[in-house]
């Protein structure tokens, strides 16, 4: 297709939008709603994923020693733990550090800690904190650690990671359903808009055919109309979401200050690195599919 022909088709596509304003606005609005909901769910899924990853990074199991285990044995256990496949790092926590962690847990309650001043209740609770590369290997690594000589107990918990993964799955399913419904509505409305355009321009199309226009020439303005509706319908919600994202996070953090410690949100530019192209592709895709299918059905050129 020549550049001038493309320009002509483009102008006609824009004119079509103007010719049936109401349908075009309805299509753009539905498309915008669809991509807005998509964007909200996408940002949520992305953030929950991010939190799961963070939580996974923090997941560790703790290896406690039998009483009277010598330092040499403890060192040996440390070396063997490091050599296990799937272990990211191993950190020795001395009884003093264990007590300090305990103190931190109670937010530095001096009075409470005063009682333990000379008598460390965690004297035999020195341990290795074992961090994992992959949380799914946790069970296997725990049993390997339990089998080591001098090991009394291995404690582990993966509740946080598992819960977040579940939430993420549910969010994924819910968003897929909502988006599928909105996609169908968007395609239907774009199809109606293009059908209106075809009806308005029936005479022009007939003349085109007499003169010898190729199918692609007749169809191009309608496809471009659909794609344009898609692009506009994508840009509007993406812009709104961009502004809203930071505000929403700020609101959540200020309203639920408790969450500050366990929640960390992705910065907007990281979300938009994927959401922007994805949203645009979605808009263009819906516009293209909706209009292309319609003209194939209505325009037997």
């Amino acid at each position: 297709m020549r550049i001038s022909t493309f320009g002509y088709s483009m102008r006609q596509g824009v004119k079509n939008i103007g010719r049936n304003k109401m349908f075009s606005i309805a299509s753009i609005a539905t498309m915008a709603a669809c991509i807005f909901v998509f964007g909200v769910f996408f940002a949520m899924v992305l953030n929950v994923n991010f939190m799961v990853k963070k939580a996974e990074e923090g997941v560790a199991f703790t290896v406690f020693f039998k009483q009277d285990t010598t330092k040499a044995t403890k060192d040996e256990i440390g070396t063997e733990l490091k050599q296990l496949d799937g272990v990211l790092s191993v950190k020795y926590v001395s009884p003093e550090e264990a007590l300090k962690n305990f103190e931190n847990y109670f937010d530095g309650d001096k009075q409470l800690m005063e009682g333990f001043k000379d008598d460390n209740p965690l004297a035999y609770s020195d341990n290795y904190e074992v961090y994992l590369k992959d949380v799914s290997k946790q069970a296997k690594l725990v049993s390997s650690a339990e089998a080591l000589n001098g090991v009394r107990e291995v404690r582990h918990s993966d509740v946080v990671a598992k819960t977040l993964t579940k939430v993420n799955k549910l969010l994924g399913i819910a968003s897929a359903i909502v988006i599928a419904i909105l996609l169908a509505v968007s395609i239907f409305l774009i199809s109606n808009t293009v059908t209106m355009g075809i009806n308005i321009r029936r005479e022009e199309i007939a003349i085109m055919k007499y003169i010898g226009a190729k199918d692609s020439f007749v169809r191009a303005p309608f496809v471009l109309e659909g794609v344009l509706i898609g692009v506009i319908g994508a840009i509007i919600p993406l812009a709104i979401l961009y502004v809203m994202y930071n505000r929403a996070i700020h609101y959540v953090m200020s309203k639920f200050a408790l969450l500050n410690n366990i929640m960390e949100f992705l910065p907007v530019h990281k979300v938009y690195a994927t959401l922007l192209p994805l949203g645009l592709i979605l808009g263009i895709g819906i516009g293209f599919v909706g209009s292309f299918l319609t003209i194939r059905k209505h325009l037997r050129v």
């Binding site: 297709m1 020549r2 001038s4 005479e203 003349i207 003169i211 020439f217």
Partner: peptide
């Protein structure tokens, strides 16, 4: 069968555009 929303020049140019003339 002229296009009412276009002037005379564009009506004739239309035949050439349709056949993708420069």
């Amino acid at each position: 069968r002229l296009l009412k929303d276009r002037n005379i020049y564009d009506n004739i140019a239309f035949a050439l555009r349709v056949t993708e003339k420069p």
